Simulated assay, not measured.
Amino acid sequence: MKLFKDFQSYNNYIGLDNPLDNDIDVGYYTPSKMLLKSEAVMVDFYRISIKINFKSKITPTEKPINAVFFNSPDLVLTTGWDVEPNYTGIYLQLSRKIIEENRFLFKTYLDYGQHEALHLTEEEIEEISLVFNLMIKYYQNDIKHYTVLLSYVNVLVSLVEAFYKRQFSTDPKQYNHIISNFQQSLIDYYNQPVSQIPNVQYFADKLGLTANYLGDIVKHFTQKSTIETIHEFVIKKAKKLLEQNPQMKTAEVAYELGFEYPNYFSKFFKKQVNLTPKEYRLQFLEINNKTPS
């Protein structure tokens, strides 16, 4: 596997123009001059690629597509690539440093990795091309105009955000299995002894997705964040334990759900329900005319 820490070494490998800056690089793809087949690759920076009439030899039965692709740090392209030389396109490369210093400008889409290509309509290609042409103008003329350049980068990423929402809505059946698999994984988690509260990353790893990608799919189709869904499930389990086991101490309920500290469970429960576990149980018993045996 080849690891690339900077734009220069990656551009030389793939056959792109030399970057004008170490933190941001913008350019056009020229497949006739580029490496069309590679070994496994990992880059230590962010890449947004817009490719038109793109076709991979790895999936020969699929038709050429117009799409946005992402690469993020630590993502390994295990099979590399093997592509037809007929596509055109543009690319934007951003260092870890520039992302962290300007995180407010960027969305979670930069961390979708290879899980989700954004398929573009002709109108969307035209919109992106207009923004890109302005971006490359300021990149090539004076790289010191970072403020203007980053503004156009922000517009580009915002367009991608809007286009993703369109894609999610256009073919919801494509994403239904992700929602159902996430929900089933949550159920499965508590069908075994647990030692901690599950987090978003746990389920993302379980489903072979990035946390951001899973989170945006769940949010789009359920109007709740992934962590909200997890917390609601935990509260539902907690209520059931409190209702059906009158003699079960709060600490025992906490440990059963994976909380390391009972006090944290009580605070968590109070925040979600506006009652302490003890108050909730007493209220439940009073409403249902039950008394602890």
Rank of each mutant, 00 (worst) to 15 (best):
N154A: 15
R96W: 08
Q174N: 12
Q167R: 08
F203Y: 06
D17L: 08
L92M: 01
E39N: 13
Y280A: 07
I50H: 02
Q93P: 13
D44K: 10
K290P: 10
Y109G: 09
K206Y: 11
A204V: 03
A204L: 04
N289R: 13
Y255I: 09
V83Y: 01
L118V: 00
E252D: 10
Q272D: 07
D23G: 03
I58C: 10
I179M: 05
N66S: 02
I179P: 04
N199R: 11
Y261L: 08
F182G: 01
K219L: 11
L16I: 04
V155C: 13
Y261E: 09
Q174K: 15
D21A: 04
G113C: 07
F233I: 07
Q283T: 11
D25V: 06
T121Y: 03
K5N: 12
V68F: 00
K239A: 15
Y28K: 04
N191M: 04
T291D: 15
L35A: 11
A211G: 13
P85K: 01
P246Y: 08
Q183W: 11
K97E: 08
K2E: 12
Y280G: 07
L207N: 03
V253H: 00
E124H: 02
V253Q: 00
E101V: 01
K57S: 09
H220C: 12
S185Q: 04
P277Q: 03
D21R: 03
D142V: 00
T78M: 14
Q8C: 08
T30C: 14
D171M: 15
Y280R: 07
F54P: 01
R96G: 07
P246M: 08
D25Y: 08
T291P: 11
L275M: 06
Y139T: 01
Q184S: 07
L110W: 07
T226M: 02
W81N: 01
D171I: 15
M34Y: 07
E126M: 13
K97T: 09
K219V: 07
Q196G: 14
I48T: 00
D25H: 07
A204M: 05
V41H: 05
D111F: 08
I99A: 04
I90W: 15
V76M: 11
S32P: 11
F203D: 05
Y28N: 04
N212C: 14
V253E: 00
E116P: 12
S38A: 01
I143G: 00
T276S: 07
N53F: 05
T108I: 15
I52G: 09
A251E: 11
P262I: 02
E127T: 14
N18L: 15
N263P: 12
Y255L: 11
F69Q: 15
V148S: 09
E124D: 07
Q283Y: 07
L159A: 07
T226W: 02
T250F: 13
T88H: 09
N274R: 13
L275R: 05
Q192C: 03
N263I: 14
E228P: 12
T121P: 04
M34Q: 06
S38Y: 00
I48Y: 01
G27N: 01
T108F: 14
M1F: 12
V194Q: 02
L207S: 03
Q223M: 06
Y175C: 06
D6M: 04
D6W: 03
K278S: 15
V253I: 00
P85I: 02
Q184V: 05
G27D: 00
S169K: 14
L214I: 03
Q201D: 13
G80C: 05
L36G: 03
I125S: 04
E127N: 11
G89A: 04
